[in-house]
Amino acid sequence: MEAVQVIEAVGTPEKGVPTPAADRSTGSARSVGARRPRRRATRAWLTAAAFLAPALLTILLIRIIPFLGAVVSTLHVRDGVGLLAEERFAGLQNYVDLLSDPLFQATLGRTLLFNVIINPLQIALALAIAVLLTRRVPARGLWRMAVFIPCTIPLVGSSIAWGVALRADGPINGILEFLGLPAQPFLSSPSQALASIMLVASWVGIGYWMIFLVAGINDIPDELYEAAALDGAGGWRSFWSVTLPMLRRPLLFVLVADTVANFVLFVPMQMLTEGGPQNSTTMLMFDAYRRTYTYSQPNQGATATVILTVIMLIIVFVQFRLLKEDRG
Rank of each mutant, 00 (worst) to 15 (best):
P20M: 12
A21K: 06
A22C: 07
D23W: 12
R24Q: 13
S25E: 12
T26S: 02
S28C: 04
S31D: 04
R35G: 09
P37T: 04
P37C: 08
P37D: 06
R39V: 13
R39W: 14
R40H: 09
A41W: 09
T42C: 08
R43A: 13
R43N: 07
W45P: 00
L46I: 01
T47P: 00
A48I: 14
L52Q: 10
L52H: 03
P54E: 04
A55P: 05
L56G: 10
L57K: 01
L57M: 15
T58L: 14
L60D: 03
L61Y: 11
L61N: 05
I62K: 10
R63E: 12
R63C: 12
R63H: 06
I64A: 06
I65H: 03
P66C: 04
L68W: 05
L68F: 07
G69D: 07
G69F: 05
A70I: 04
A70Q: 08
A70C: 05
V72E: 08
T74H: 00
L75N: 01
L75G: 02
L75C: 05
L75S: 14
H76P: 02
D79A: 10
G82K: 15
L83M: 09
A85P: 01
E87S: 15
E87P: 01
F89E: 01
A90I: 13
G91M: 06
G91F: 05
Q93H: 05
Q93T: 11
Y95E: 00
V96C: 03
L98P: 01
L98T: 11
S100K: 07
